[in-house]
Amino acid sequence: MIHWLTQPFTLEFMQRALIASLIVGVVCSVLGCFVVLRAMAFLGDALAHAILPGVAIAYLLGANLLAGALIAALVVAVGIGLFSRRGAVKEDTAIGILFAAALALGVVLISTVRSYAVDLTHILFGNVLGVSTGDLWLTGILAAAVLATVFLLYKEFLLASFDPVLAHTLGRRPELLRFVMLILLALTVVVSLQTVGVGLVAAMLVTPAATAYLLTRRLSRMMALAAAIGAASSVAGLYFSYYLNVASGAAVVLTATVVFMVAFVVAPQRGLLARRAAARRAV
């Protein structure tokens, strides 16, 4: 059993994959709590797809993919922020148009290269086994920046998410905080690019946080629990990927989804069984 657990990580690329997965599991889940509570899931998904052209251009130029993604993500976050302020169409429509177009542009750019199918798959669904030491450093630094910002602005984000009206009357600039949140979301998407890819990052943002939401009734605890669930799902998913020889990013996401389903049924107050029981008692 011990051997079964340690064997994958005797390989160096698996060690790097483990560290990358843990970082992504934690940072996505913590920020994901705000994504869930502020109903920004669609926005996160859109942001993830919209960075594809940046990745493609970096790829064509032979530059660092993460650097390309980072620049694209920041441009898109600023764009969405400005767009959603005073749009001619509803915000979700604007986002839908923007992200489908960006995805198409990315695919067009990548398709100019011959090894198109393989590269696109890696970008869309991640390739955690190919993480280099340099990637790991960049991932770690970006993740630390995101977590530090969430920690420092915890009180502000809590207030702006729960009661934007009070935030406004206390001079807390909820639009500015929303903008900062978009930037953090963009950084998180970039951090997740290699582990789960742009196609599945929304799941990592939403699923562990939603699971934690079912299990606790206080934001600070929700964040801690989400981080633990995200990290555990990442490690478990990596084992499944190794022993069943399946795609790692998808394995991580499916593991997190199973945890969510269990919580959905058995959570103490918000779970299906508890709500059924409460309804029966009320009758």
Partner: peptide, 30 residues
């Protein structure tokens, strides 16, 4: 000025305790 909005304008399923919400009243001074 402190303003107490109508109850309908708040998402009551948000994971905060009574203590957390009342503490928000201090944020302006903090």
């Amino acid at each position: 000025i402190a303003y107490v909005p109508q109850r309908e304008e708040i998402d009551w399923s948000f994971p905060v305790t009574v203590q957390d919400v009342v503490m928000m009243g201090r944020y302006g001074r903090l």
